[in-house]
């Protein structure tokens, strides 16, 4: 199978970096943060990792990784197992980073992020409704979506800087 990806520059390295970012965001989503006395929930944060998933990353491995990280966050947050996994898989299958033909600019990434967050909110709402027989608190969901969207440029910027300075120029995209 590896032969099919011979034209993808350093597919394994990109997958590892994507896994690292997703791990970092998952841990951040599981921690309790208090900013200026306000409790801040960032459970949608790992979706940024999926939004910025490298297009040359091995897609089957990407699906396995996303599956496992969804499950990990469900375990860490004591949520229904499979809940986030399903949401991540829906996002991945709709936006399919591996089919992207061009490298992301901030504009395209942000527009895609808006699409992802809307789809994620709909998925959370209906999966919660069907799976738990209860409608989620819309205010809490909206607040989390807004907060994560505010953090999106920062994470994009950090990732960009990291890629620009630490990675070989031939191997950036």
């Amino acid at each position: 199978m590896a032969g099919q990806y011979s034209s993808s520059p350093n597919a394994r390295g990109k997958t590892i970096r994507a896994v690292f970012i997703l791990f970092f965001l998952t841990i951040l989503a599981a921690l309790n943060l208090n900013i200026l006395g306000q409790s801040v929930a960032l459970s949608l944060l790992p979706l940024i990792g999926i939004c910025l998933w490298p297009r040359y990353a091995h897609p089957v491995i990407s699906i396995i990784v996303i599956f496992l990280f969804g499950l990990l966050l469900d375990f860490l947050t004591n949520d229904a197992l499979g809940f986030r996994t399903l949401i991540y898989l829906i996002i991945f299958s709709v936006f399919r980073p591996d089919t992207r033909s061009k490298q992301h600019t901030f504009g395209t990434a942000f527009v895609q992020w808006l699409g992802i967050i809307i789809l994620a909110l709909v998925a959370v709402y209906f999966l919660g409704w069907v799976g738990r027989s209860v409608r989620p608190d819309l205010l809490s969901l909206g607040y989390q979506a807004l907060l994560t969207t505010t953090l999106f440029p920062l994470i994009y910027f950090i990732r960009h800087i990291f890629r620009y300075f630490l990675i070989d120029p031939d191997d950036r995209y």
Binding site: A30, L31, N32, S39, A41, S43, L76, T77, N78, D79, A80, F83, V124, G128, R132, V134, P136, D137, S140, L141, Q144
Partner: peptide, 10 residues
């Protein structure tokens, strides 16, 4: 308290 969850369900 090492992890506090303020999710829509939990």
């Amino acid at each position: 308290a090492v992890s506090e969850i303020d999710g829509p369900f939990v």
